[in-house]
């Protein structure tokens, strides 16, 4: 059952990314292009996703997940250097190509060679992230 609902969630997420235009790098870069021809429409996509999720979070209070286990606890409001450095690097890459991890996966079947190369580079980046994290920690110490 867990696998079935994971599959359905992933599929619904992918469909949403396609329909909303998050897989179109030109549209994403237009949304980030505050200093040029700014296209604010993706703000509605983000807002439209946050709203049902806010309702879902409220619904978790005093309940447990349908298939067992516990809901993930709210993380400590601790802002480390990894959060800031990582978000800056991620944002720089997102602006450069117009793809973030979800849309990179959702569009890999129809994104041509560019989409495949991006996904491969992204997975390589994820593989070297643990040593990179240790390096950032050492630098900050």
């Amino acid at each position: 059952m867990r696998l079935l609902f994971a599959l359905i969630s992933g599929g619904l997420f992918g469909a949403g990314l396609l329909v909303s235009g998050m897989v179109d790098t030109t549209k994403v870069q237009g949304w980030l292009d505050v200093f040029g021809a700014w296209d604010p429409t993706l703000a509605f996509v983000l807002g439209g996703a946050i709203l049902p999720m806010a309702v879902a979070w409220r619904f978790t209070v005093g309940r447990a997940p349908k298939l067992g286990g516990t809901f993930p606890p709210k993380p400590e409001p601790r802002l480390g250097h990894n959060l800031v450095v990582g978000s800056l690097l991620f944002g720089a890459g997102w602006g450069l190509a117009g793809l973030c991890p979800g849309p990179a996966l959702a569009s890999v079947s129809f994104g041509g060679w560019g989409g495949l190369v991006f996904l491969a580079a992204m997975l390589a980046g994820m593989a070297v992230a643990p040593p990179a994290r240790r390096w950032v920690d050492a630098m900050a110490a």
């Binding site: 897989v23 179109d24 790098t25 030109t26 990894n82 959060l83 800031v84 450095v85 990582g86 978000s87 800056l88 690097l89 991620f90 944002g91 720089a92 890459g93 997102w94 450069l96 190509a97 117009g98 793809l99 973030c100 991890p101 990179a104 569009s107 129809f110 994104g111 041509g112 560019g114 989409g115 190369v117 991006f118 996904l119 491969a120 580079a121 992204m122 997975l123 390589a124 980046g125 994820m126 593989a127 070297v128 992230a129 643990p130 990179a132 994290r133 950032v136």
Partner: peptide, 24 residues
């Protein structure tokens, strides 16, 4: 997807997205 046709741009961006999102 209108993805860039410049392989250097794509590889650099993919690496940044992969490392950055995991660090964060």
């Amino acid at each position: 997807t209108h993805i860039s046709q410049n392989v250097f741009v794509i590889v650099a961006a993919g690496l940044l997205v992969g490392i950055g999102s995991r660090l964060a």
